[in-house]
Design a protein around this nucleic acid. Sequence first.
RNA 1: GUCCCUGUAGCUCAGAUGGAUAGAGCAUUUGCCUUCUAAGCAAAGGGUCGGCUGUUCGAAUCAGCCCAGGGACGCCA
Length: 551
Amino acid sequence: MTKIENFIIDLVKSSAEKISSGAFPEEVSGVYLEIPKEKKFGDFSTNIAMRLTKALRKPPYELAGTIVDEINKTGKEALLESGIEGIRIEKPGFINFYISHRVAIDTLSGIIEEGLKYGRLSLGKGKKVQVEFVSANPTGPLTVAHGRQAAVGDSLARILEFCGYEVVREYYLNDEGVQMGILGESVKSRYLESIGDKKDFPENGYKGGYIYDIAGEIRDLHKGSAAIEDNFFVEYAYKWLMKKIEKDLEDFGVAFDVWYSQKKLSKSGKIEKAFDILRKKGFLYEKDGATWFKSTEFGDDKDRVVIKNDGTLTYLSPDIAYHKEKFEKGYSRIINIWGPDHHGYIKRIKAACQALGFDKDALFILISQLVTLYRDKKPVRMSTREGDFITLRQVMDEVGKDATRFFFMMRRTDSHLDFDLELAKSKTMENPVFYIQYAHARISSIVKFSDGAKVDLKNLHLLDKDEERDIIKELMRFPKIIESSERNLEPHVLLSYLQDLAGLFHSYYNSHRIVTDDKILTAARLAMAGAVRTALYNGLTLLGVSAPEKM
RNA sequence: GUCCCUGUAGCUCAGAUGGAUAGAGCAUUUGCCUUCUAAGCAAAGGGUCGGCUGUUCGAAUCAGCCCAGGGACGCCA
């Protein structure tokens, strides 16, 4: 929020309070300023008069008039001094503010001075948040679906950090249990097959080609010995896959702070402790030889088994203990990013958190919806069961890290995503990644080209063109956009913003020369272009997309 | 059957806490490279915002009910 915005908000607020007999009506939570799309409606606009109509029982237009009269008591000169050049009331009751050129320039000057810090917020100061994402089982390479979760989770983490939060990125590692056993059996079966000892492939076995690769390595290592312990297959496959997963994530620009092992959790006794609490509170009961959790008490459709009748735990059990631990660590927000297949699982885990006495609203579970890859306008079929799926690695190799990350966030996280491989690959204007990167590269090259012209904040007032004012206003939106993506836990609003900003710059670039013989004007325009570059750079970095100096 | 997501221009989609004549890109038509990257810019056409009812000063946005498409609903993880 810039100085002038704060000033206007305070002004409006105090005036509105006065005319509503001292106090602000409760249902009107605050004063919002927006930047109108239409230039004729000024630089800032507030809808406060409309929102007060109900409480004050007066038509909005009339109220707007009273508010403005109140504001005008401040005195014309004092207003002008603060940068407000004009106030106008528009049709239903909008109050529109027109700011002076001087204030616009001052604002730009402030943005330039902030440099790379521009857009950083302090709303998360002193608060810790955790983002748990990907958490793919180590039974196969990361898929496209995991890729989307990785992109969204990491970008959210970056955005939260930018907002001042301390962020912990965590990967929950399912390194024990049934599926690890199946992994071992699958590899063993392929191994035996490879040394000519045909064996039936396990029913739920992993059929992907990578199982052959692992088996092949083991054969090379053990020269075809038939006497290998079962456990060896599991261990070997696990390590092999983890190495792959870590490398994929690294190349995708994602780094985790914590790899949380389920195996260690199970051994720690924490699951039993969680059960004890639930049992004491009466949320566990026995039926049909199994132990059930009364999740229906908290709005779930049915109760859930936590200990099966064979004595083993269901997936929910360690997860309850895991979430208990998350809450105990004192995060102000706990964010989980899950795949669409987990959506029915939200109610029961929230129920468990509530049952344990935690505030379920501190737990944010985002569902990253399906990704469908398209090639030549046709969907690429995938079936995990047959082991026939497209990996994150394949997509990254084909279209590059930048486009992959960008495309995964082109739509809201909880919306289905169609990923057009040809488009992502194309180096044309249809491709939004290149459009934005190109703007950044263009500015970078001008800055280099004009070596010698110094950035001079004193002559920014020369930036009096309409297009320049538009760019300054767009730059002013950047912190609002950051705030919005933080509040909604949604990186994708940032993409649209960057496209808009890049568009404004491309347009400006074509209509006005930045580098001219006029050294002073050149310096001013370069300074503004530099501010655009900074916003683009910060935005792209938050998305984990590189901002190239040249293309 | 229950739950989640989606339905906006010919196509792919934006639309931030409900706001002022609903916006981009592609495609179509037409202009702009002797000058900072034409991977770009400018202009034009194109819409019952799936439908109906309601809440509101005001609805693409919120609520209810329909219609259509995608997905999830295990003592799997």
